[in-house]
Simulated assay, not measured.
Amino acid sequence: NEAGFHFRHTNYGRDYDTKADWVKDIVAAQDGDLCLECGQPVRTSRGVEVGNIFKLGTKYTEALGGHYLDSDGNQKPVIMGCYGIGSDRLLACVLEEHHDENGICFPISIAPYQVYLVAMLHRAPEVAEVAERIYREAWEAGIEMLLDDREATPGVKFNDADLLGLPIRLTIGPRSLKQGAVELKFRTETESRSIPLDEVIPTLKTEIERLLQESRERAVTVPFPGTSPYT
């Protein structure tokens, strides 16, 4: 409170007769209180500020000489406003909703890459050759793929794949190549399956489209007063 401006333990009309524009009893709204607009119970929940709108007025345009001529030819300062979405805040919100004990679980629609390609024993010529061929063909087919060709243990690579959270993990190793196949696993599932080498790209395209469609179907239409619904 500001000294000499705010007063505590006083009653309007009893302790002073200053004419006020309005006098109200003010309390903090709680769950179950009735809305003054619609009469329905209020529901409170926590939220995150991901966007900002600032009405800047003419503060900066007057200082910098930003003017325009109106229809009567009079010079007036431009009225400014700025709008923005905090991409880092938005990402934090997504990760808060899409993660598990092992790391991130990126939705396919915003994942930095769609597929995490793990090359087991990349120093083995046959593994390196197939991994690099699939990586090249994937990008040519429009599939966004990250190739992990580090000389690291399988456990390190799998843990890092879970931590980064790309939607699909593809694993190539000497054992699977002997069977003419690679291993495919989704980040949100525990089981994996084998895919023949000649079906890798078509299978990835099909699964990526399926995940994108599921993401679109989960979108919720939000009504906004005075406008058409948006998703």
Results as ranks from 00 to 15, higher is better:
Arg193Gly: 03
Val222Ser: 02
Val27Arg: 15
Gly65Gln: 00
Leu147Cys: 07
Leu212Met: 12
Lys55Val: 04
Ala29Val: 10
Tyr83Ile: 01
Gly81Met: 05
Ile85Lys: 13
Pro202Met: 05
Val42Thr: 07
Cys38Ser: 06
Glu151Gln: 14
Ile208Cys: 02
Gly39Lys: 12
Ala124Met: 13
Asp25Thr: 14
Met120Pro: 00
Tyr68His: 03
Arg14Asn: 14
Leu64Asn: 00
Ala128Trp: 03
Pro196Gly: 11
Glu191Arg: 09
Gln40Thr: 03
His99Asp: 09
Tyr68Asn: 06
Ile143Gly: 08
Lys55Pro: 02
Ile26Gly: 01
Met145Val: 11
Arg216Trp: 03
Leu36Pro: 13
Ala124Pro: 00
Thr18Leu: 15
Pro154Tyr: 11
Glu101Pro: 05
Glu140Val: 04
Glu151Ile: 08
Arg210Met: 06
Leu177Thr: 07
Glu217Thr: 02
Pro223Arg: 05
Ala29Thr: 07
Ala119Pro: 01
Lys76Gln: 08
Val48Glu: 09
Val222Trp: 13
Glu129Leu: 12
Pro125Leu: 11
Ser192Lys: 11
Glu126Gln: 14
Gly84Met: 01
Phe224Leu: 13
Glu49Asn: 07
Ile134Pro: 00
Phe106Pro: 00
Glu144Pro: 00
Asp25Arg: 09
Cys35Ala: 14
Gly39Tyr: 12
Gly65Pro: 01
Glu214Asp: 08
Asp160Trp: 05
Leu117Asp: 02
Pro229Gly: 11
Leu204Trp: 05
Cys82Arg: 08
Arg8Glu: 13
Arg46Ala: 06
Leu90Trp: 05
Leu90Val: 10
Asp72Lys: 11
Val78Met: 08
Ala131Met: 01
Gln179Asn: 13
Leu56Tyr: 11
Leu56Ala: 03
Gly65Lys: 00
Pro167His: 04
Asp70Asn: 13
Asn1Lys: 13
Pro223Met: 02
Tyr116Glu: 03
Val220Gln: 10
Phe106Gln: 06
His9Met: 08
Tyr113Ala: 05
Phe224Asn: 04
Lys19Glu: 14
Gly51Pro: 05
Glu96Trp: 12
Val94Glu: 05
Ala63Phe: 01
Glu132Arg: 09
Ile208Pro: 01
Tyr68Ala: 03
Glu140Met: 06
Lys24Ala: 14
His99Arg: 14
Thr58Pro: 02
Thr171Ile: 04
Pro167Cys: 06
Glu97Gln: 15
Arg216Ser: 05
Thr44Leu: 15
Gly226Lys: 07
Leu163Ile: 01
Val118Gln: 03
Gly180Lys: 07
Leu170Ile: 01
Ser87Leu: 15
Arg136Asn: 09
Thr231Val: 13
Cys38Gln: 15
Val118Asp: 00
